[in-house]
């Protein structure tokens, strides 16, 4: 009995350690957002934001075009997620449930595409969108994000669909469902966690992007939140309080999104991988 309790205590200690390491930078971000100028970069670390200020938040929200940036970011994220899920799902269905010529090549291609460094592609992508008249347009960055999200999405979803026993579908069909019906009633619910996992991945990638949006967008009214967050750094240095207040605001939607999908996510992330 004591031994068991000891092990339990050991696990909890380890958990606290893990929590400290993961949460400390987050705590520092949130706390700094409430600190006054002199307390931010101080020789003796200030652990608590006392006396605090809301000035940083005011300045973050008061940046010109803030609401416009929010709108753009939300639009871009939703569009990218919805389109990528739809396209990836169809492609994954093909890759998982059908045999066809070029399937192996497809799988290899999906991996190789992820190996190309983004930074090296930025100018070629710009030039191509420029030729199509799609720079400085949200549509332009949406399709660009799609290409970075799709390979991962197809890959993950394929793993998912492979993992679902065909017998389930067959059983459903024996019970009188059509293939489409089997698909909708049996396959779809089982794939849902995979869709969630993919959505989360896309969300992080798109929500956090700075470089693509920065190079492709130029009008002040078309910027995204990633650019807004970077605007605290100017040639006059970085306004740390503003960055941290902004980052806290910036992270909230991501955390909320996570919490909403978290239960599905956990089952989602793996099922996709189990059958390689």
């Amino acid at each position: 009995m004591t031994r068991k309790r000891l092990t339990r205590a050991g696990y909890n200690t380890a958990a606290v350690l893990v929590l400290l390491v993961t949460l400390f930078p987050i705590y520092w971000m949130v706390a700094t957002g409430f600190k006054r100028g002199v307390d931010i970069l101080s020789f003796e670390p200030r652990w608590l934001p006392i006396p605090g200020t809301l000035e940083n938040y005011r300045s973050a929200i008061g940046k010109p075009h803030f609401l416009q940036d929010v709108r753009n970011s939300v639009l871009v994220v939703i569009a990218t997620i919805v389109i990528s899920l739809a396209l990836a799902f169809l492609a994954a269905l093909a890759a998982a449930r059908f045999r066809f010529r070029g399937r192996a090549a497809l799988v290899v291609m999906l991996i190789v595409v992820q190996m190309v460094p983004l930074e090296a592609l930025i100018i070629p992508i710009y030039l191509m969108l420029d030729r199509a008249g799609q720079t400085d347009r949200l549509a332009g960055i949406i399709v660009t994000y799609l290409t970075f999200v799709l390979p991962f999405a197809i890959w993950t979803l394929r793993g998912f669909i492979v993992n679902i026993p065909e017998e389930l579908e067959e059983a459903a069909m024996v019970d009188g469902c059509t293939r489409a019906g089997a698909f909708r009633r049996i396959l779809f619910p089982l794939v849902a966690p995979g869709l969630v996992a993919t959505a989360v991945f896309s969300f992080i990638l798109v929500w956090n992007d700075y470089l693509i949006a920065y190079v492709l967008l130029r009008s002040p009214e078309k910027q995204t939140l990633g650019i807004w967050l970077a605007s605290f750094t100017t040639n006059h240095g970085t306004e740390w309080g503003g960055v941290m207040a902004g980052s806290t605001l910036f992270a909230i939607p991501a955390v909320v999104f996570f919490l909403l999908v978290q239960r599905r996510l956990v089952s989602g992330l793996t099922a996709g991988a189990v059958k390689g």
Binding site: L23, M29, N208, A230, M244, S247, V255
Partner: peptide, 9 residues
């Protein structure tokens, strides 16, 4: 939460 934190920050 750590995952959701903006990378640059």
């Amino acid at each position: 939460a750590a995952w959701a934190m903006p990378t640059l920050t």
